[in-house]
């Protein structure tokens, strides 16, 4: 893996991945702190993990849920507090506005 360079494009890529718009001051700060954070977590790369599986769930197997319906009036009343339109939640359009 080639060394990561904290270019403006890279920061823009991160903003897009995380869907968080940053102020210019934040971009500058992010570049500085990313260098510190990545240097720190890069220590993980030096750990020999040969032979270890990524999973250590403390229980052997999960239980499954029975297929029995239960209705939740509270969730409905929660949503009804939002500004609904004929019961629908209003959201922004998906197609980019010019």
């Amino acid at each position: 893996m080639k060394k990561i360079e904290f270019t403006d494009d890279f920061i823009k890529h991160l903003e897009w991945l995380a869907r968080i718009e940053l102020e210019d001051s934040e971009k500058k700060r992010l570049k500085e702190e990313l260098a510190l954070l990545l240097r720190y977590i890069d220590d993980v790369l030096s750990i020999d993990v040969e032979g270890y599986s990524p999973y250590i769930y403390p229980k052997p197997s999960m239980e499954l849920r029975e297929d029995i319906p239960v209705s939740d009036e509270d969730a409905y009343s929660y949503l009804s507090r939002l500004a609904l339109e004929e019961g629908f939640v209003k959201g922004p359009v998906v197609i980019k506005k010019k």
């Binding site: 903003e15 995380a18 869907r19 968080i20 718009e21 940053l22 102020e23 934040e26 700060r29 992010l30 702190e33 990313l34 954070l37 959201g91 922004p92 359009v93 998906v94 197609i95 980019k96 506005k97």
Partner: peptide, 21 residues
């Protein structure tokens, strides 16, 4: 008067710095 990407990205500016980074 917005689109989903803009809506999402701008509302998430409300996170504090530690969470954002």
């Amino acid at each position: 008067d917005t689109d989903w990407d803009e809506y999402y990205m701008r509302n998430r500016k409300l996170f504090g710095w530690e969470v954002k980074r």
